[in-house]
């Protein structure tokens, strides 16, 4: 189609398109058949976009493409975020408000902390929180320690059987936790650590995955650095902590973040191992909370918000790190 033809076709599309869209939007709140109104609005929007796009001018094209992009992304974003909004808004609703149908979009009083208070009274969420914090902190510290040492050994040090051992470990990386769980459960029970916080930390003190990532990173640090340090009389230990770890900070941060997230959110293992209420971690505590409050979903939502908050905070603080780390880790995995 030549330029003029396109322009005409484009105009023929977008003018009625705009009309249709406007009609649809106007009728949206008043008509009984919502679907028709929505269909009209969407169809109109599509026609408008197509028509504008066909329009010859480069500027209009780019503008339309941009707008469509933003609109689509925003729509998707709303859908993705909605459950979080819903969680938060429900947490502040009263029991009566929860029983409305259709449900209200926002609670009457955004500052009504009642549900949180009740939730904290019904179940020892503070305790759960403490437990989770303790577990995550210990797990992260210990795992980081073993990972750093192990990655250093595999990347820098020479010892017989290094390659074979590493290949063996790599092949074991694929083994799913679901297999290990069976024996680990038995071992934990038999050592007598069942139902303790130790049980939540111990099985995870070494991670092949994290060591693999860190080792690759360490390997990329040039040999020259090591040898010039050695020539100056630097010991391995010092070299590791004063040079390699600072240089390896990005990868280390990634590992720590991933580890913290996985540990905080872990569910199946605590479910198996923890029996007493006082030893529960947050996600598990939340889950058992459901059986106790039954149908009082506003309490559940309040509790869920508490569980989710720290991770959301972490995300805001370390968003770039987390995203990059997941990408890097995912590609390695």
């Amino acid at each position: 189609m030549d330029k003029r033809g396109k322009k005409i076709a484009g105009t023929m599309l977008y003018v009625p398109g705009v009309l249709l869209m406007v009609l649809g939007i106007i009728y949206l709140p008043i008509t009984a058949s919502m679907s028709l109104a929505v269909a009209a609005a969407l169809g109109g929007a599509a026609m408008t976009a197509a028509g504008l796009y066909l329009n010859h001018s480069h500027k209009t094209k780019t503008l339309t493409a941009r707008t469509v992009r933003y609109v689509l992304l925003s729509l998707g974003a709303v859908i993705m975020m909605f459950p979080f909004y819903w969680m938060l808004s429900s947490a502040f609703k009263t029991s009566a408000e929860m029983n409305l149908f259709p449900p209200s979009m926002a609670p009457n009083n955004w500052f009504d902390y009642g549900n949180f208070v009740v939730a904290f009274e019904t179940a020892p969420f503070a305790r759960y929180f403490m437990n989770s914090v303790i577990v995550v902190l210990s797990s992260v510290v210990i795992t980081a320690f073993t990972t750093i040492l192990g990655a250093f050994a595999f990347s820098r040090l020479k010892f017989p059987g290094k390659e074979i051992l590493f290949s063996l470990l790599l092949s074991m990386m694929m083994v799913p936790f679901e297999i290990l769980v069976i024996t680990n459960y038995q071992t934990i029970v038999k050592i007598g650590l069942s139902d303790t916080l130790y049980a939540l930390v111990l099985p995870f003190i070494s991670s092949i995955f994290y060591t693999y990532i860190l080792r690759n990173f360490f390997s990329s640090i040039p040999d020259g650095l090591y040898w010039s340090a050695r020539v100056d009389g630097c010991t391995n230990w010092r070299y590791l902590w004063k040079i390699m770890v600072p240089i390896g900070r990005p990868a280390l941060m990634t590992i720590i973040l991933l580890n913290a997230m996985a540990s905080w959110n872990s569910f199946m293992w605590p479910l198996l191992v923890i029996k007493r209420d006082t030893n529960r971690t947050l996600p598990f505590g939340l889950y058992s909370f459901t059986t106790e409050v039954g149908a009082n979903n506003e309490l559940l939502m309040a509790a869920s918000s508490v569980v989710v908050m720290p991770m959301i905070l972490l995300f805001f603080l370390a968003r770039k790190q987390i995203v990059n780390g997941v990408a890097r880790g995912g590609i390695k995995g």
Binding site: L73, G76, A77, V78, M80, M81, P83, F84, W86, M87, S90, M261, W264, N265, F267, L282, P283, F284, L286, Y287, T290, N297, L300, M301, S304, S305, V307, V308, M311, I312, L314, F315, F316, R319, I322, V323, V326
Partner: peptide, 25 residues
């Protein structure tokens, strides 16, 4: 930043918590 947050947030949050919201939904 806003879009990234919106699309990536579910990844960091506990599955029990989001599971409960969805259950309510």
């Amino acid at each position: 930043a806003l879009f990234q947050t919106a699309y990536f947030l579910p990844m960091v949050t506990s599955i029990t918590a989001v599971g409960l919201v969805w259950r309510w939904i």
